[in-house]
């Protein structure tokens, strides 16, 4: 069995800049240090984000991925989206219009687990398609 954890939605602070980023990371840390963390960060209230803020988001995502989890972003305002794009970080995150959409996306596929019996998948060693038996 691969039990799935509940998806946690966090509200990002209004400022995600040099002075606030570390504080934010410390708030996020306990949520990230679990097995397969599944987090949605609601970015709708972010009014200011700088390079330190983006780096903190990347750090959070890295921590989540280390434990086979993920961090997804929701409701990213245009100003924050521009900063993410500018720092080439936009393509590293899954971004959704709303937190609800982001939460649903976690349920679309298991966060981690074996493929269903009838699914065709690629065997990396063989380098060719084969049906899982």
């Amino acid at each position: 069995m691969y039990p799935s954890r509940p998806v946690i939605v966090m509200q990002a602070p209004a400022s995600l800049n040099q002075s606030e980023a570390e504080k934010f990371f410390l708030e996020m840390k306990p949520l990230l240090e679990v097995e397969r963390p599944r987090l949605v960060l609601d970015c709708s209230e972010i009014q200011e984000m700088d390079s330190a803020g983006v780096e903190t988001l990347l750090r959070c995502m890295e921590e989540a991925m280390k434990r086979d989890g993920d961090l997804k972003l929701a409701a990213v305002a245009p100003a924050s989206a521009i900063v993410l794009e500018m720092m080439r970080a936009d393509r590293l995150f899954e971004v959704f219009n709303s937190s609800e959409e982001a939460v649903r996306s976690f349920h679309a596929l298991p966060a981690y687990g074996p493929p269903p019996q009838d699914q065709i998948w690629i065997d990396p060693a063989a380098g060719e398609f084969e049906a899982a038996s």
């Binding site: 700088d50 245009p78 100003a79 521009i82 900063v83 794009e85 500018m86 720092m87 080439r88």
Partner: peptide
């Protein structure tokens, strides 16, 4: 190491033409 696209940049202000948004970046 930045990507700046479809924009007009003046000092610390960036206007995204695509999004029609102007932002002031303090960093």
């Amino acid at each position: 190491w930045l990507d700046v696209r479809h924009a007009v940049v003046n000092g610390n202000k960036l206007m995204s033409v695509k999004r029609n948004v102007m932002i002031e970046i303090s960093d």
